[in-house]
Write a protein that binds this DNA or RNA. Structure first.
Lengths: 156, 156
DNA sequence: CTCGATAGTCAAGTAACTTTATAATAGAGA
DNA sequence: TCTCTATTATAAAGTTACTTGACTATCGAG
């Protein structure tokens, strides 16, 4: 198993691999969802981002790793389908806030329901204690990724 | 917070959200990596898949949600860069096994090293017991996604 | 040994992305 | 206040990646 990844002294790499495995599986899952709705992967990812909170075009571009021009086109597609709405930013008249329409919320909900239910079941199996623990672990991992992203962006 | 996702009785949805949050962050991370290597997201995803084991074109197409023709082009690009190798399947002469070159292994390793180290540190902070627990949880989640994928594919 | 099904390739057309240029606004400084 | 530069988003042209449909080679059932 000499795959170029430097091994940690003990088998700490298990967590790394488990993490990337999960990501890969979710990726495949999203590919299927995107196909079902017949939108592109990035369009779906944009909807996922907006599910949490409205964002500026700029922020969407950053998170998706796209150029601003590309995000404009992306928004045009989603707006035409009435999945997002553009509304003016209250303080900056250059900026545009993008938010999901209620329709989009509903559609996304129904698309991810099956997956959601399956994980809720897992959560129930775990019991309250372990479930909370799981959430903490995932959040820790997210934080780690965030901070590495920021470090990587510093060194261009 | 009425976002269309049906709430579970208790706040079990924490795990779902944490999971998708992690996925989203890793996605942004991958977007940056892809940009650094100047290959497309799907090309990078393909490399990630192959890091685990060689795959058939068919399997790559499925996992990435692409058509077979598209995967042929994808492989052409990666092969031109000497990141993958096509080799004949030992038993099925129609099929083609795709594997990473040693170069690709090394490159991927160095690209993900920073992230890997950060997670290994986290793992060390956790201690052996909790780290193993974390791996189990991630694997459980992967399994759930896998099985939902299979269920979804049954109902087209 | 046929014949339908499967794995992959190829060529033409479509969709998504990048690049470059432009317009409108913000915010800093003379 | 009035520039001047930076920021935010859009538009149009060119490039890259993807899909579709036709084709070749091979498999495996009958």
């Amino acid at each position: 198993m000499s795959n170029g990844i430097p091994k940690a002294p003990n088998d700490d790499y298990g967590l790394v691999q488990a993490c990337r495995e999960l990501h890969s599986v979710i990726d495949s899952f999203d590919a299927i969802i995107a196909q079902k709705v017949s939108i592109s992967r990035n369009d779906l990812r944009c909807l996922n981002l907006l599910e949490k909170e409205p964002l500026l075009s700029k922020q969407i571009a950053e998170k998706l790793g796209l150029t601003s021009g590309s995000v404009t086109a992306l928004q045009d597609r989603l707006e035409k389908r009435r999945l997002i709405r553009r509304k003016p930013h209250p303080e900056d008249r250059r900026a545009i806030l993008v938010e999901l329409t209620p329709t989009a919320h509903a559609q996304l909900g129904s698309l991810y329901r099956m997956m959601g239910e399956s994980i809720v079941l897992l959560s129930d199996n775990y019991g309250k204690q372990k479930a909370q623990n799981a959430v903490h672990i995932l959040n820790d991992l997210s934080e780690r990724f965030e901070s590495v992203i920021q470090r990587v962006e510093k060194n261009p």
